[in-house]
Amino acid sequence: MTRKLATGQVSIANVAALADVSTATVSRVLSGQRDKDDDISRRVKDAAAKLNYSVNFAASSLRSDVTRTIGLMLPEMDDEQTPAHVLNSLSAAIRDAGRYLLLSITADPEQQKEDLRSLLTRGIDGLIVIPENNEDFIASLNAEHKNLPIVQLGGKSLTSHISWVGTDQSEAMRMTVDHLAEQGAHAIAYLSRELESYTAADLFTTFYTQANALDLTPDPNWVQFGPCTMERGYQAAISLFRDRRNVPDAVVCASDSIALGVLIACKQLGLQVPEDVKIIGYGDSPACEQTQPALTSIRPVYEDIAHEAVHIISKWNESMTKMPTYRAFKPELVYRESTWSARTGSSDMTPPGSTNM
């Protein structure tokens, strides 16, 4: 019968013996340096759990240059809450990798520089940033790219010297316009975010290109730029549908907040969604499932993006070239009632619930 060791008596050698592997393998698995999810990793983790063994990361960091920490710099939360989705996914991915998160949330340029200096002095193993178009901040990132793996999440690439992981925004727009065309839309409006934002110009170009290809060229007055707020969506819809002689039958919204405002305005104006107007948002926020009708939305694959960012940082030291990585993920279209159209054939007559396309 195996005698259970007290927590203080357990060593890495005990774990290695129980898992029938070397102590070096135990160290790599529990530190996250070995990221394969195979039988060896499972045996090591099971043995560590049975013996109540945990790695002393603080002591380990004193013996090496690895601190097991990743820095994350976010702008202030906006009303779309996209950074909240990112933060939740990154926290889980970093935790799964056996690492710890050091977080900075600020949109103030001076505070960003100060927070970056603070993270660097703590010896972080890598840095993940949500873009802020700050020249001093970009210069600081360029100065560190040879010493530290840095990954930008989404937006327009700030610099060619750091890795980029995010959503394929052009593909997201193509999916959106194609979906509306398939649902019978003929005249599409587009409520974009502010034109000076990182992806707005590219999305605007993709929207027009795809709409023209499908013979859905919008009235110029139907393409508008502004903040991603519910109030903006409401006011834009009131303006769009005031004159019923020339109105769109679908509205593409740059955020779910805008889409919610459009939905409220349509109800106030007596327009039926989706019979009179189809509405699609971006972000797939929890509110999309709570509205009547439920809102169709584009959902970035936040979990995949987060795990790829952490993977790039974890593998950086093994790379000989230290070249930046670029990875764009195709999003999901979550199809709900706000864009449904009954079409010929019994299989098309049932309104959608919440299905990914």
Rank of each mutant, 00 (worst) to 15 (best):
E337M: 13
P331D: 09
A342E: 08
W340H: 10
R327L: 03
W340Q: 01
K315P: 09
S314T: 15
E318I: 06
A309C: 06
S314A: 14
R336Y: 02
I312T: 09
V310E: 10
E303S: 05
T321V: 08
T339H: 00
Y335I: 15
H307D: 03
A306Q: 12
E332H: 13
S319R: 08
W340S: 01
L333N: 06
A342H: 02
K330H: 03
I312S: 04
M323H: 00
I312W: 15
T325K: 12
T321H: 12
T339L: 01
K330V: 07
A306Y: 13
T344F: 11
M323F: 00
K315F: 12
R327V: 07
M320R: 06
E308H: 05
W316H: 11
T321W: 13
W316R: 10
V310C: 09
E332K: 09
I312L: 13
A306E: 15
R336P: 11
V334L: 08
T339N: 01
M323V: 00
K322Y: 01
S319C: 04
W316K: 11
E308F: 03
S338N: 09
M323E: 00
S341C: 05
E332D: 12
P331M: 07
Y302C: 08
H307A: 08
V310R: 07
R336W: 05
I305V: 06
A306C: 12
E308T: 08
A309D: 09
R327D: 01
R327T: 08
R343V: 07
T344W: 07
K322D: 02
R343S: 14
I313S: 10
A328G: 15
F329S: 05
T344V: 10
M320T: 12
D304T: 11
Y302K: 14
H307E: 05
E303F: 00
A328W: 12
R336S: 06
P324E: 01
P324M: 02
I313F: 14
R336C: 07
K330Y: 01
A342S: 05
S314P: 15
R336H: 04
R299F: 08
N317K: 03
T321C: 04
Y335T: 15
P300H: 08
A309F: 05
H307F: 06
K322W: 00
V334W: 05
M323R: 00
L333D: 06
S341N: 08
F329L: 06
S319F: 03
P300G: 14
M323I: 00
I298F: 13
